[in-house]
Design a protein around this nucleic acid. Sequence first.
DNA 1: CCGCCTTGTGTAACCGGTTACACATAACTT
DNA 2: AAGTTATGTGTAACCGGTTACACAAGGCGG
Lengths: 325, 325
Amino acid sequence: MVTIKDVAQEAGVSVATVSRVLNNNGYVGADTRKKVMKSIAELNYSPNEVARSLYKRESRIIGLLLPDITNPFFPQLARGVEDELSRSGFRLLLGNSDENVEKELDYIQTFVQNNVMGIITATNHVDYDIYEALNLPLVLLDRTSEEYPAVYADGRKGGRLAAQTLIDKGAERITLVKGPAHVKPAQERFQGAIGALSEADVDFSVLSTTSYSFEEAQGWAEELFDKYVDTDGVIASNDIVGIAIIHEALKRGKKIPDELQIIGYDDIPQSRLSYPTLSTIRQPAYEMGREAAQLLLKTIKKESGVERTVQLPVELVERKTTRKE
Amino acid sequence: MVTIKDVAQEAGVSVATVSRVLNNNGYVGADTRKKVMKSIAELNYSPNEVARSLYKRESRIIGLLLPDITNPFFPQLARGVEDELSRSGFRLLLGNSDENVEKELDYIQTFVQNNVMGIITATNHVDYDIYEALNLPLVLLDRTSEEYPAVYADGRKGGRLAAQTLIDKGAERITLVKGPAHVKPAQERFQGAIGALSEADVDFSVLSTTSYSFEEAQGWAEELFDKYVDTDGVIASNDIVGIAIIHEALKRGKKIPDELQIIGYDDIPQSRLSYPTLSTIRQPAYEMGREAAQLLLKTIKKESGVERTVQLPVELVERKTTRKE
DNA sequence: CCGCCTTGTGTAACCGGTTACACATAACTT
DNA sequence: AAGTTATGTGTAACCGGTTACACAAGGCGG
């Protein structure tokens, strides 16, 4: 490993001078600078971030904690975060929590141990002590909070919009699929939908589910049609479940959207590739990731007047699983 | 921030003793140990990994470089790597290269600067100097190599299997979709398919594509049916493109699998949710990630007799876009 | 010509851990 | 009882950077 000492020796100067050249601060004579640069290039030296981080008590790393990168909604968040962060030279320490408190605390701890400059987290447990004790810039992503800066899309409004859409398009026996109870955004969109349904003149039933996974989505879909045989409108808990429902409906010979309308949530990329293409409530995931990164960067730089929360708009994307009026 | 000094002071011992307690090495008296433990708990101390890493010249971080986490094949690899690695207390520094050399080199450099203990990379550029100069355990993932340990599934065989399947099931005018030229695994499966097609008695044509993205997949599908109107069997470059082709085919009123058979590649989770469900060549992505992590860990621990390469089997998954004999 | 400011560079302390080494005491050996 | 070994603990060097401080030399105003 080539260190700053090697460079100093090669250039015939002290390590302090090399450091000054590297960081472009303090006084350095023009020809000294040139010599040092030459030595750096010759030795192919690049400074050790760990040593730097130790002294400065900062780093160029931020921690990103997501529930499960395998759920297609999250890679987009992650890319948004990464693309924005890497423009400022930051790197990502990534963790999947599986919505599990222990894993989460574990990751947060190692983030801290590694001197991360900030944390972006999609947690359902902001209330835990660890976040409070955390003396670090923190941004919640895809989650709301009064205490911390947060970037999210309006789940209540989204749920409402999903329900209202089906109502407007003439669904009369709506089934509302409720996402996992411990996942906060799932509950918000559920509440929104319940609100709109309650105010309207429609029958509806609720199917409770406990996961978002591909493996189980098919099971929920089967359960749905077994229990609510004559439903003519389904509000899915997310697009994965929505696509599973399309699939099961076609298998059972239901005509979409004439006999059955379906609306998803998230607008993951593959929703445009389902058949029929899935109407859904779009959350701008990539944008959310970018916004969270920007917010975190501003907090790190201690810029004044930084927004506490950024709420991004949800939007109805009409495709082929809902009727044209 | 509470440091080892604080703990030492609180417990009335030296930092060396605290360190010995932490690392469970050297001699420590039973009651001293107890005192130290108590102080650690009281102060809620957890050691700074950065300082540790600096002295030991090692860390509990490994670098993972993937082309694009937004492509549904890769999150599975990433989860496999993470799940396996976290069992040994390692964390993941993640980068997306977009198959772009500069980004790749940039990430590799920061990995090194952060004292990562090893790197897992899905690169098309192993031949670059930087990997050679890298004095670090390296494992290639989803890529083959003579020089470095590698974990991959047999692309040639997979391509061959895809083609042979369509031939066996009676397709007579096959279209082979060729993935991006700079992506190595894409070329291997392409070569495999070409091989099988050349040996058989079928007409076939090749459609060249330059990306795997959701956005463009639909375009490739349209182009395919515009150019090769009467094709009755498509070998897609991956499942995303495969699903886009199903979609376009249904839109054009083709009967699947009677008039048109389609076979994908990868077996991403959503392939089970397409309609009709996509027949495909399965790569065990999660397993591949795990294997790569295991291989890397073994290399780090300098275990002897570590395999150079792990080739995982590809497998035909027959679903509804291919005929039953 | 003298005092002061600007410029340029080196020395050494520091960040928070780990560990080689020194030293002291207790426990065995023979 | 003296020598040897095992046990327990502290001091200080070290990892590779950054920076406070000291010091020297040159430029400039009065």
